[in-house]
């Protein structure tokens, strides 16, 4: 934001703005920072509480314990599901959005209406489970990718973005002998990069955060995504309130449930934190392109 010279009220506004945004940033980042300092503090210090700004009795025991577990196997699975799933999502969504965006497509209104119905009505959990089972997708990564290959909401945003491309551009390409696939691949998609980058983020975050489908369709632990393990650690730990170990020495409390929880949150959040800044700049632009024209 540019600060113009002169005008006390403008300066005051800018100062307020910076202070307010700084506080907002602190509010957003502090929970993550707190988890980080808990994860590198000694378990006994965490038990005693009061860790707010700085870690106490710093140790990497928690991260050593995390490395001993299967965290990286789950993380690898999550990355595979996110990358492959998002690629399938974008591919299928573009294939569906393109014809629905062309005015020359006969039955366009009918198909759009049919697709829109799924925004409001779903088959439900049990029919979906039976369908996945009958297609022999159980215990495969496709069970997490194919049933949700297209998000209707996201597809409609892509369709709206495709519609904003002038028909004359498409027609001139057709006159030059381009097929529909060539037009989609070489003209429409390159002109809709901002929207697609946003959809990529939507789809990717949704894959990264999802656990419910995996819980339903996956029985093999080696195929579990990270979120299943994370949710179990955070919620299952509370449910299992009576698990305990007695008679340990002080040294054995370097890691506790609280430090392991914090460390796991940090490690599992890292990949999305790293990817987000690279896609974020497309974010606002993409949503606006898709939403205000249509």
């Amino acid at each position: 934001m540019a600060i113009k010279e002169g005008g006390v009220s403008r300066k005051a506004f800018n100062i307020f703005n910076y202070v307010f945004l700084f506080l907002l940033m602190v509010v957003c980042l502090y929970p993550l920072y707190l988890q980080f300092i808990i994860s590198i503090s000694h378990g006994l210090e965490v038990m005693k509480g009061g860790i707010t700004l700085l870690p106490r009795n710093v140790t990497l025991a928690t991260y050593r314990a995390i490395l001993r577990g299967d965290l990286f196997m789950y993380m690898k699975n999550s990355i595979i599901y996110t990358v492959v799933g998002t690629a399938v999502n974008l591919f299928m969504s573009c294939l569906c959005a393109y014809p629905l965006s062309r005015r020359t497509f006969s039955g366009r209104r009918f198909f759009t209406a049919m697709v829109s119905v799924t925004l409001f009505f779903g088959g439900g959990m049990i029919p979906m489970y039976l369908t996945v089972k009958q297609f022999d997708l159980m215990d495969t990564m496709w069970a997490l990718i194919l049933p949700g290959a297209i998000s209707t909401y996201n597809m409609i945003i892509i369709r709206t973005a495709f519609q904003s491309i002038p028909d004359s551009l498409v027609e001139s390409a057709q006159l030059d002998g381009a097929t529909d696939l060539t037009i989609l691949w070489k003209i429409v998609i390159p002109l809709s990069k901002a929207t697609l980058a946003t959809m990529l983020l939507f789809y990717a975050v949704s894959h990264w955060n999802s656990y419910f489908d995996a819980m339903l369709y996956i029985n093999k632990k080696e195929l579990y995504p990270l979120q299943i393990m994370l949710r179990n650690m955070l919620i299952g730990g509370q449910l299992a309130e009576e698990t305990e170990m007695v008679g340990s020495s002080a040294a054995s409390f370097a890691t506790t449930d609280a430090t392991l929880r914090a460390g796991t949150i940090i490690v599992s959040t890292l990949p999305i934190l790293i990817v987000y800044p690279f896609v974020q700049r497309h974010f606002v632009k993409g949503v606006m392109v898709g939403s205000i024209k249509g």
């Binding site: 049990i126 632990k221 179990n232 299992a240």
Partner: peptide, 21 residues
């Protein structure tokens, strides 16, 4: 051995019973 996490076990169990699977 199949070991769904404790946090999701109730849902999983219900679906398996409901679908007789």
């Amino acid at each position: 051995v199949e070991a769904p996490p404790k946090a999701s076990y109730a849902d999983k169990k219900s679906v398996l019973i409901a679908t007789d699977d």
